[in-house]
Design a binder for these strands. Structure first.
Lengths: 346, 346
DNA sequence: ATTTTTATTGTGTTCGAGCACATTTTAACA
DNA sequence: TGTTAAAATGTGCTCGAACACAATAAAAAT
């Protein structure tokens, strides 16, 4: 049977004291070759699993983790992240970890930089952040790294050797899924990819989604679909899109690459004679409203709550269970329609 | 600040010994009214959270949980359950819990009864089971209950006051989702609900799904769809379905209420001129093959792995963290197509 | 008033790992 | 060979909760 061994057991089996076993296990040195061999022989033979209860009971050090996310006052997309992080906090509240949330204004680079400075001042053991601003995020991560602070990111991909882990979705694949759905919705015709660019930088997000979207149709039998791209900034958005649709009456499907599908829905809902297929992102209140009245056909769920949860727990578990942090964790891309929308709020 | 209090702290604050505090906390009696009052006053004032590490370190009792699931040799649907249970085992391996898996033959009531007897002989603290056989499951659960053994179920719903928890999906809603998908796939026409009944009993499953499916169309503008039901037992399945489709050429969509959509796909794939929309359940190898070649349009993912995982962890956490077991946990109903299928194997 | 019984309260050990410190062994050097 | 330095090894306390057992106080019985 798989008996549970303790350090004391190992010490007895190897004929040494538990202090020596401890030194071997933690590679603290000051062990003779002879003793090292004896202990290692035992260790090879049995499957020693340190008792994590005893360990964390003894350890008085409290690990500190800071999470940097955009303030949901600016964009409701981020609200679920708070819940995910709080779930993680709750789950591990008995352990020696402290998780602190720092909010920044997603429309302000300065706010991002400043918040990172605040985080740095609290000198945490690890930071989980949403790298919304490419350059500034890289700088911050570099600084953390130089101070021995672990950095993980989620939601937005960012390549850097100083990053321990990324949690998010495969955006290229996400675009392909949207394509497949629109393929089903309108069997042929013209589709426009709509990029509603906010002030802040999610260009990479949108680009990857567009690539995936186009990739799907390129590998399809030709002639059935025509794909266009339409970029628009927020202020002039309403009139511009209206004009665009009027001047392109062939358009039968729209793919909105951000969480702002409801804004598009608002416009096309005014013209109910001509149903335009609409696929967008994220389960915001506004989007769900138009999903339920079937102006929006499908929403793709990016699961920000779970992203934040997993990003947080992987750091926590790294500290208290010495678990390895997997460099990349890609979440399933959930397809949501009228019928299963409410399931994703659990 | 939210200081963490220990029993010693409480004892000092109340001016009694830690033994007395312990007796108050555990209601072991043998405490004078005076002391009781003093301790309770402190307890009201502060928020005492017992250190679970220390507790489980001291407790030598090992909790035993048995999980009863169908043998995946008979039906590959159950394979992921094993993985989910093993994930739970791994996650809590440092704690005082032992999780044991018992397999039974889903085609044999006798096997189910016998396995329950084996479980009973090992006198566990809790049992998680798939109540495939209605009457026998109720009997088993009644027996467990009388011996003080906690029973939880997953995958199949079953009503009994002796059941602590159910993990699964809302099958009615699941049927509605299938309906919505077929509504999109074929804008109008005749749809057949196909019940492929295995020897074992999942009639309730299928009935609920059918109800949800029909419910969706009943609330729709009339005249667009006609819904039929087709029941078939396995042996004669192939020829019967073929004949059925030939004699009902109006059928443009099929909803297979079990994981056997691939068997239907095999038949309709032979007649590629007439594309029939097909929606089924579960990410089996066989189903995925036909999903990828687009014979199957959508699969609904019942997430057996997560069901088993959550069923197991909720019992484990009940024992080691004294967490309450929520009586019902309904999982999201995932819509799967060619593009996001592989995401669900993580 | 003294002993006995009962009720109440306090003390000390345990769980396993981690680490400081004490002790022993070995090596280095005069 | 004796002395000192260095290396290796062992011992013992701690973390917080649980619980057995010892100790004390209060009540009851003689």
């Amino acid at each position: 049977m798989d008996k549970i061994y303790t350090i004391k057991d190992i010490a007895e089996l190897a004929g040494v004291s538990k202090g020596t076993v401890d030194r071997v296990l933690h590679k603290r040195g000051k062990v003779s070759e002879d003793a090292l061999k004896k202990v290692n022989e035992v260790l090879d033979r049995i499957d020693y699993q340190p008792n994590l209860m005893a360990r964390s009971l003894k350890k008085t050090q409290i690990y500190s983790i800071c999470v940097l996310i955009p303030d949901s006052a600016n964009d409701p997309y981020w609200q679920p992240c708070i819940d995910g992080i709080n779930d993680a906090k709750k789950e591990f509240k008995s352990f020696n970890v402290k998780v602190e949330i720092f909010l920044f204004d997603p429309t302000s680079t300065a706010s991002f930089v400043e918040t990172n400075q605040n985080v740095l001042n609290s000198s945490p053991d690890a930071v989980l952040l949403v790298p919304l601003f490419h350059k500034e995020a890289l700088d911050a991560i570099e600084t953390y790294n130089s101070k021995g602070i672990i950095s993980s990111i989620f939601n937005n991909q960012l390549k850097s050797s100083a990053i321990k882990s990324f949690v998010g979705q495969d955006l290229f694949q996400s675009g392909r899924i949207a394509a497949r759905l629109l393929d089903l919705l309108i069997k042929k015709g013209t589709i426009a990819i709509v990029h509603i660019d906010e002030d802040y930088e999610n260009a990479i997000h949108m680009q990857e989604k567009e690539k995936g979207f186009r990739d799907y149709f390129e590998n399809l039998e030709t002639g059935k679909f025509e794909i266009k791209t339409f970029k628009v900034k927020h202020p002039q958005f309403k009139t511009t899109l209206k004009e665009y649709l009027e001047s392109n009456p062939a358009i039968e499907g729209l793919f909105v690459t951000t969480s702002k599908a409801y804004q598009v829905a608002k416009i096309i809902a005014k013209n109910p004679e001509k149903k335009i297929a609409l696929v967008g992102y994220d389960l915001l209140e506004n989007n769900l409203e138009y999903l339920n009245n079937k102006t929006i056909d499908f929403l793709i769920h990016q699961n920000p709550k779970r992203q934040a949860y997993l990003g947080t727990t992987s750091l926590i578990e790294h500290f208290i269970f010495e678990k390895e942090i997997s460099p990349e964790k890609l979440l399933p891309i959930d397809i949501v329609n009228t019928e299963n929308a409410k399931d994703y709020f659990l």
